[in-house]
């Protein structure tokens, strides 16, 4: 069952929040291609970024199709302004070292895994199908991030310190993933959307297990004040979009 009717905006907003997270994460991750610590890793991060970009395309295409008049994936990716993006701060901030990227990927993919595992049973058939495909992909992302967090956490003295610093730095941005203020409760009640708040428990169990095995300490820091789901982003988001959008916007109406 799709939520149809005069006003699709709640569903569109929900789908956009999922799509924007993946799109922005892919954009940041792709910066590592040709810059990662090892050639094999260039290929690995490329695969993960491609998966995320594929998810973003499906989700934005779906969100756009629900609008009247409809918009394409590219309309949504290239011609929305910063305030209209719904992505979280975790994925949009500028890259740090490889440890920071792996901490983010661990946090994001663990959230994605819990999310898509549930969303594949969504009452919305399109979302269910997108989630069923995505859950296999993010399972692998989570595995890859886990591998690296273990190796960096329990590697050398230097890598341990850097990995702990990365986890500490990213931890405040985790809570925003589980916020549900932007979500119309009716979408959850009708079985279309997954309430992000219910993912917090299983997420924490998995991540805490990985950090413990990696000899890392679970940070005890308060969440950052964020507002990505309301379009209130980090300052670096503007630069990310400027770079991503400038060519498409320089040639409005052009086909590529």
């Amino acid at each position: 069952m799709a939520v149809t009717g005069p006003d699709n905006s709640a569903l569109v907003g929900y789908v956009l929040s999922l799509g924007d997270d993946s799109l922005v994460a892919a954009q940041r991750l792709a910066e590592w291609i040709a810059a990662s610590p090892q050639l094999e890793e260039d290929v690995a991060v490329g695969n993960i970024a491609l998966d995320l970009l594929g998810q973003a395309r499906s989700l934005l295409t779906y969100a756009g199709s629900l609008e009247d008049p409809p918009r394409t994936e590219d309309d949504l990716a290239y011609f929305r302004d910063e305030r209209d993006f719904r992505s979280v701060h975790l994925v949009e901030r500028a890259n740090g070292d490889f440890g920071v990227t792996m901490a983010r990927l661990l946090f994001l993919s663990s959230y994605h895994y819990e999310l898509y595992a549930r969303l594949q049973r969504s009452a919305d058939e399109t979302l269910a199908a997108i989630a069923a495909k995505a859950v296999k992909e993010v399972d692998y992302h989570r595995d890859h991030a886990t591998m690296w967090v273990l190796r960096l956490g329990d590697g050398t003295e230097l890598s341990h310190a850097r990995m702990q610093a990365a986890v500490d730095a990213e931890w405040p941005y985790v809570e925003e993933l589980f916020g549900n203020e932007h979500l119309d409760p009716a979408l959850v009640e009708s079985g279309v959307a997954v309430d992000p708040a219910e993912l917090r428990g299983p997420w924490r169990e998995y991540v805490a297990g990985v950090l413990a095995e990696a000899t890392l300490t679970l940070p005890d820091v308060p969440p950052a004040v964020t507002g990505g789901r309301r379009g209130v982003h980090d300052e670096q988001m503007g630069y990310l979009l400027a770079e991503m959008q400038h060519l498409a916007r320089s040639h409005p109406g052009a086909t590529w």
């Binding site: 094999e40 290929v43 690995a44 695969n47 595995d143 890859h144 591998m147 190796r151």
Partner: peptide, 10 residues
């Protein structure tokens, strides 16, 4: 473990 994953990716 990493060899197996790199093999999958490559």
């Amino acid at each position: 473990a990493m060899a197996l994953r790199n093999a999958r990716d490559l």
